[in-house]
Design a protein around this nucleic acid. Structure first.
Length: 615
RNA sequence: CGGGGUGUAGCUCAGUUUGGCUAGAGUGCAUGACUGGGGGUCAUGAGGUCGCAGGUUCAAGUCCUGUCACCCCGACCA
């Protein structure tokens, strides 16, 4: 490829829109341009990187026995209504009405489509296991696209779906995918850690996330100090804290706190630490899960209009459950743990009016004292960290009042028929698990494998005949890789002040030939080596622009091309070409007549190193 | 959707507070000359509905109202 004939619009200045390094460099190196918030145009260099990642993914998927197909991006809404995900996905689901008045979905993922296919085409256990995948555009109408391609509205995902008769078979394919994913990320040259993720319907180790650690990641990974176990923060368990020695405090006492009821403001007002406060959260959820869906749908459809008040919603919902959750002031409720505790499929809703009805106070002044006597409360869930407190400050269930000197167990019960003390919070710095210190780091989720069970096959009637001659619901697994995110993570993993430092497997070109000077002999020598490298099958870019050396070097560095071969006046006179690795500061020389050969060997070697077997 | 911010040349930004002449700089682009190993120098030139609409005024990039887009924090995220 000739630089002069390629669109690689590099820029010197950092674009104002871009906050994180991968986003900045993708724009600066001319890999892409923004079309609108969360949608990007991939330019030739960026496109080449996408294609290289896709090629690796495709090779590893095929090698693992999966088969590639293509699913339409535009899919009928009816399919999504059958699984209820037209509602579950909420406003993130992109949709439009066609000229016939039919509603269509812009596929944000494709369980429905693949299960539809399986329902029609898989009839016998003899066809199983079957693993189908596609690499295709996905659309999600994100509330807030950000960080360049890390959270965009349109992106490319590899999604695979496997079908099975039994759990063992599913597990086998699941592990094959797990291994294939390891190979994909190894070959792409990104660091990654595998963490246990939300387990979903199947329980146990039903999902793993592949995460590239980096400062700018949106996910938080929690791992033990010995590096043996890792979780997504949504799933990380914590040891209960040691019970604090009983303090000699007086009786609980109401104090006037005429301020906003947030933990931060109240703790400052009373001059106590947030960790000495008890946060009281009140949730409610309709007893019938279907009602939650209807309500969600109602809100989705009426978002701008007559939004129901809390009471109206509650009335519309029929019977409902109310849960009171107590966590320490400096802790956060973990929604995943909560959902798991109360049963999946239940939506938890918060309505200020309802909270006011129950506590008799404005939001911000709820407290546990006296609440356990209220019949309408189904359950009080107390985090062990609250139970371990010697004394705390809580809301008084009276607007503008809090209670100090509250002793858990003395002033409100820690046991009882509707009281449960159970881990319900996010792990924080200082927590342990099984006695081991928990550490935190941020990361970018680049892949996830998931055991789906029969969730979709049941709803879409994907059954097949077993050896026993009876119909069985198919078990499914699904496996996703974010193609664009791999590129962003690779950049977050490798850059310096001059630009990207890319793994050779995904760099837009493997080698750049830089003629430093426009004398005929320099150009000729550069052209020759360029031709030889091409003949050797190396992906090579020649910077044939009429520009100064400095400009070419800067752009080569910005693009992160792993190997640079420079033809300059001095070295040429000695029959040498210059050789430099992007990742290393030093330069060396190679004899002109064997340079191409040696560089080609080096390229092969660098690629082979990324292919090395896992672990 | 709540909070904060920004829209002026392809890009990065001055100018808006306190309304006033023909709207500026750097960079990029074009042309020419000199250069030629880390974004070089000089000269000339093209490039703007000052986000959009309406209003106030003798006069609006600047003040007012509305609106749109984009960015950041939060909420949300199979």
């Amino acid at each position: 490829m000739r630089y002069s004939q390629t669109l690689i619009p590099t820029v010197k200045e950092v674009p104002a829109d871009a906050e994180i390094i991968s986003h900045q460099l993708m724009l600066r190196a001319g890999l892409m341009r923004k079309l609108a918030s969360g949608t990007y145009i991939y330019l030739p260099a960026g496109q080449r990187m996408l294609e290289k990642v896709m090629r690796i993914v495709r090779e590893e998927m095929n090698r693992s026995g999966a088969q590639e197909i293509t699913m339409p991006v535009v899919q009928p809404m009816e399919l999504w209504q059958q699984t209820g995900r037209d509602v579950d996905y909420g406003e993130t689901l992109g949709k439009f009405e066609d000229r016939h008045g039919r509603w269509n979905v812009l596929s944000p993922t494709a369980e429905e489509g693949f299960t539809f296919l399986a329902a029609n085409e898989i009839n016998s256990y003899k066809q199983l296991p079957m693993n189908l995948y596609q690499i295709n555009t996905k659309y999600r109408d994100e509330f807030r696209p950000r960080f360049g391609v890390l959270r965009s509205r349109e992106f490319i995902m590899k999604d695979a779906y496997s079908f099975h008769m039994d759990e063992d078979c599913l597990h086998k394919t699941y592990m094959q995918m797990y291994d294939a994913y390891c190979r994909v990320f190894e070959r792409c040259g990104v660091d990654y850690v595998i963490v246990l993720a939300e387990s979903g319907e199947m329980g146990g180790s039903g999902s793993h996330q592949f995460t590239v650690p980096c400062e700018n990641g949106e996910d938080v990974i929690v791992y033990t100090a010995d590096d043996k176990q890792a979780w997504n923060i949504e799933k990380a368990p914590v040891d209960p804290l040691a019970k604090q020695p009983a303090a000699d405090v007086g009786a609980a006492e109401e104090v006037h706190t005429p301020c906003e009821g947030s933990i931060k403001v109240v703790s400052e007002f009373l001059n106590v630490q947030p960790k000495d406060m008890i946060k009281t959260l009140i949730y409610w959820t309709p007893s019938n899960p279907q009602v939650t869906k209807d309500l969600n749908a109602y809100e989705v459809n009426h978002k701008d209009g007559d939004k129901l008040s809390g009471k109206k919603v509650a009335a519309a919902a029929g019977p409902y459950e109310i849960y009171v959750i107590l966590v320490r002031g400096d802790h956060e409720v973990n929604q995943e743990k909560l959902t798991r505790l109360l049963g999946s499929g239940l939506g938890l809703l918060e309505y200020p009016e309802l909270i006011e009805d129950i506590t008799g106070a404005k939001v911000g002044f709820a407290g546990p004292i006296g609440l356990n006597d209220k019949d309408e409360i189904s359950k009080i869930i107390i985090d062990p960290a609250v139970a371990a407190m010697a004394v705390g400050v809580t809301g008084a269930n009276k607007t503008d009042y809090h209670i100090v000197n509250v002793v858990p167990g003395r002033d409100f019960p820690l046991e009882g028929k509707n009281i449960q003390v159970v881990d319900i919070r996010n792990a924080v710095e200082g927590d342990t698990y099984e006695g081991k210190k928990l550490l935190f780091k941020r990361g970018i989720e680049v892949g996830q494998v998931f055991k789906l069970g029969d969730k979709y096959s049941k709803k879409l009637g994907a059954k097949c005949l077993g050896e026993d001659g009876k119909e069985h619901d198919l078990l499914m697994g699904c496996y996703g890789i974010g193609i664009n995110r791999i590129i962003a993570s690779a950049i977050e993993n490798g850059y310096d002040e001059n630009g990207m430092i890319l793994p050779i497997s995904i760099a837009p070109w493997e080698v750049i030939v830089t003629p430093a000077g426009k004398e005929d002999e320099i150009v000729e020598a550069a052209e020759k080596i360029y031709q030889q490298l091409q003949d050797a099958g190396v992906e090579v870019l020649i910077d044939d622009r009429n520009a100064r050396g400095g400009v070419k070097f800067k752009d080569a560095d910005l693009l992160g091309i792993p190997i640079r071969v420079t033809i300059g006046k001095k070295s040429l006179a000695e029959g040498q070409a210059e050789f430099k690795l992007r990742s290393e500061p030093d330069r060396s020389t190679l004899p002109l007549d064997t340079a191409a050969e040696q560089v080609a060997a080096m390229v092969a070697d660098m690629k082979a190193k990324l292919n090395k077997p896992i672990r």
